[in-house]
Design a protein around this nucleic acid. Structure first.
Lengths: 190, 190
DNA sequence: GTCTATATGACGATAGAC
DNA sequence: GTCTATCGTCATATAGAC
């Protein structure tokens, strides 16, 4: 039931549209049409409507981002280099695919935190989870846990801001700037 | 005409609502009601409608942010300390006033870059202008211009991301984390 | 300059057939 | 499970009086 392919298709397309357009600009009609999912299925799988659908999509996408971060960081031993290469990878991906940056969180976060407690919570949890892989990598390199956690939050914030700048400027320069400065900071810290 | 108090009141309230709710969630009716401005005035001062109003509000607010940044940075001689205290000031302000962080840009940027070229442009220019005071402060401290500009972009991105995290978490911890890490980075750089 | 009233369309959600 | 048809609401924008 939960892993039904139709349900997953709706979820994926919703996350994509949320990332590009935000919560209020993304209509249920558009999700139906672009996902190719049957119209009747939407309220069958998400009986509570748009808010539930968006919350699930954000949670789903955040989990995927965390998994990707953990994997990318594990691929390179040196922590400064690992974080650097991960962000550069996002920059390349952003340059290729037009504007994908990996942040449906930000768009929903800003719009929904004022309106929907449910959406604010799922965004908060997503950000908290995203900071963990960075902190773990830095602890593994010998940093004190408190400093590692602070750096994890810092990297998350800088990454999210750089994704926004990249989107607006249609140029991944901000992401590469962030990648290089964070590399320096980590090299200094460890 | 341009500096009419009614017009300015509409502009200020629009910027505030954009920051809190984003573009699509902010209705013209709400702007009218909360600003107390006469209903008929809106299309008199902004004949092109919502898009023009939002663009002017974002531009106006970005200019004010740049002016504030320049002033705050000029108040402290040491660049690392100046940037640190500026961001801490934003954190305090965010904690006091509920959630104000100083970023109507982000909300509009994410929603509008996909839809409106006009809004994307004004956001891009706002971010570019915001990075300048940081870069200038660092050049004044003896940093090579290229590095100073890169750090300016980096600080802008980290600040913007931290504002989002602060909003979602209802806690300025992300802003203070960013303030402290950036202080370290600048101390190392100069 | 400011007002009210309204046109027009899109949205989220629901009902009930199949 | 999936479909179509439709309800009620709200949005932006406009028209025309004052």
């Amino acid at each position: 039931m939960t892993n039904n392919p139709t349900r997953q298709r709706i979820l994926d397309k919703t996350a994509e549209l949320l990332e590009m357009q935000g919560y209020h600009a993304t209509g249920l009609n558009q999700i139906i049409k672009e996902s190719g999912a049957p119209r009747g299925s939407l309220y069958y799988y998400f009986p509570e409507g748009k808010e539930e659908l968006a919350a699930e999509a954000v949670r789903d996408n955040a989990e995927r981002m965390v998994a990707h971060a953990r994997q990318a960081l594990a691929a390179v031993a040196d922590p400064a280099e690992a974080v650097y290469q991960m962000i550069v990878g996002i920059a390349h991906h952003a340059a290729d695919s037009g504007c994908q940056g990996g942040a449906p969180l930000a768009a929903v976060a800003l719009e929904a935190s004022a309106t929907s407690e449910r959406l604010r919570t799922v965004c908060r949890e997503g950000y908290a989870a995203l900071a963990v892989p960075f902190a773990e990598k830095l602890v593994g390199a010998g940093l004190p846990p408190a400093r590692a956690e602070r750096l994890g939050v810092f990297i998350t914030a800088a990454l999210e801001g750089a994704v926004i700048l990249t989107r607006v400027q249609q140029d991944p320069a901000a992401l590469t700037a962030v990648a290089e400065e964070i590399r320096l900071l980590i090299q200094q810290a460890v």
